[in-house]
Design a protein around this nucleic acid. Structure first.
Lengths: 249, 249
DNA sequence: ACGCGACTTTGATTGAGGTCAAAAAGTAAT
DNA sequence: ATTACTTTTTGACCTCAATCAAAGTCGCGT
């Protein structure tokens, strides 16, 4: 996952967008050293909570390895996932003291953290960090709005198909033609319940719709978590999106 | 709506966040002149479309007066509103050629536009514009995520109550106690259909839920568009949010 | 291998909100 | 005022997904 065109060869934080995209792209050794000095790694086990909504959060971070979720919970326990953090995604809001969402590791998770105070100072003195962060935030906003369309207007089947196609796009290994099943295979990094929380459904409905897609031959399952998509276009037809697959592509 | 602490007295674009929040806060006359030179105003009638998703969009802009909506449409016509632009809100994405959403004026609308090329150049040379834009984008992201919770998990009644409380907070005139009905009165700037598109409902359901809230005394209606909220806390109880009213407050 | 807990599937039933249809109220032009 | 059009309300019915319930699978530690 090394960024093309990267010049520093001693970079050890392979998925960190601050270094790769914002810093390394400009190749300023001083900045790199500054970032290094405020950087530290944290790891979490699957199921562990990184921060609770409302907690003090004295760092910003980017995901190096593993998957985390952002979610909001209502008083009565209804919860909605509002973001999925994959490697290279950024979390935390410069200028805000308290976490706005629950952040939970769904797999073993490694994050590259930056202490917030120093990071904010660095943002002021290093303009292209803010510019890179703006780009990333705009991408997230687009993704959130795409998700609003899904939550507000798609059927359960379309929601599942959309989620599968997004995970596939971000995670998939395309099988060499002729070796095993043709198509795209990947592991679902989420439980049925987490998928339900993401899609605004119940876990039973998720399970039913996955079964239905399997019965209809749109997907194949090995075990509960390993999915093969024999014909990606067929899956895309089920998403309700237009041909190009939407903003998240 | 003049920002407190603003120093320039000759500012004529009263609701423009780029000038008020990003530029005026730093008080740099040169920047102000530069922004002025790439700035122009456009007005639209209620119902007019500002841009269609996919169109070339050679400007960024902020809303000076009136209300606009951002929406996404599926092939088969299902549409979901993904943002509501009130005065001082920013629209347009630096670094992107094509509009990602349909932008529609729902009332008479005045926008303060900046040509995109020059604006982007200005962003590079004027760091705090990017920083201010980052702040605004992060706010929008929070709002979008709050809306994801609404779309995914709230009941129709809670959705209506949430929308009313948001519009009330942004638009309301608090009546002097003793004069007329106590409470908060405002005009709905949206048709039932637009509300439905925002809330992921049908217009019939919107109408029914508004009628129900009226019957239950949570709101009063004069005509179809003028709403009075006799007891704001009562309305908040109906939103499903916790007491402080959530992120959008 | 066994048992336990977590996760998943499937079935039966219910209900909130969608759909279709028609009437009522509001708005604007002649 | 009358007409024509748009917006809103209300009614009857239906459907999709939620809910309640039970059984089946998987993974893991002893």
């Amino acid at each position: 996952m090394t960024a093309p065109g990267m010049i520093f060869t001693h970079v050890d934080c392979a998925s960190c967008p601050i270094r790769h995209r914002a810093v390394c792209a400009r190749c300023d050794a001083d900045e790199l050293a500054e970032l290094d000095s405020i950087k530290y790694y944290r790891t979490f086990e699957a199921g562990q909570t990184v921060v609770w909504s409302g907690d003090q959060m004295d760092f910003v971070a980017s995901v190096v390895d593993g998957i985390a979720t952002l979610s909001q919970t209502m008083e009565d326990g209804r919860t909605q996932m509002v973001g999925l953090l994959l490697p290279s995604d950024f979390v935390g809001r410069p200028g805000r003291e308290e976490a706005a969402y629950d952040v939970t590791a769904t797999t073993k998770l490694t994050m590259c953290c930056f202490r917030k105070g120093p990071f904010e100072k660095l943002m002021v003195t290093t303009p292209h960090i803010a510019q890179r962060l703006l780009e990333m935030t705009l991408d997230e906003l687009d993704a959130a709005r795409e998700w609003m369309l899904l939550l507000g207007r798609k059927t359960a089947r379309e929601k599942i198909a959309s989620l599968l196609s997004i995970i596939a796009r971000r995670n998939a290994n395309i099988n060499a033609p002729g070796g095993g099943l043709p198509g795209v295979t990947f592991d679902l990094p989420l439980t049925r319940e987490a998928m339900a929380d993401y899609l605004g459904l119940t876990l039973e409905t998720v399970s039913r719709q996955i079964s239905a897609l399997k019965k209809d031959g749109v997907i194949h399952l090995e075990g509960k978590r390993t999915v093969t998509i024999p014909d990606f276009d067929r899956l895309l037809d089920e998403t309700g999106d237009d041909a190009d697959g939407g903003i998240l592509a």
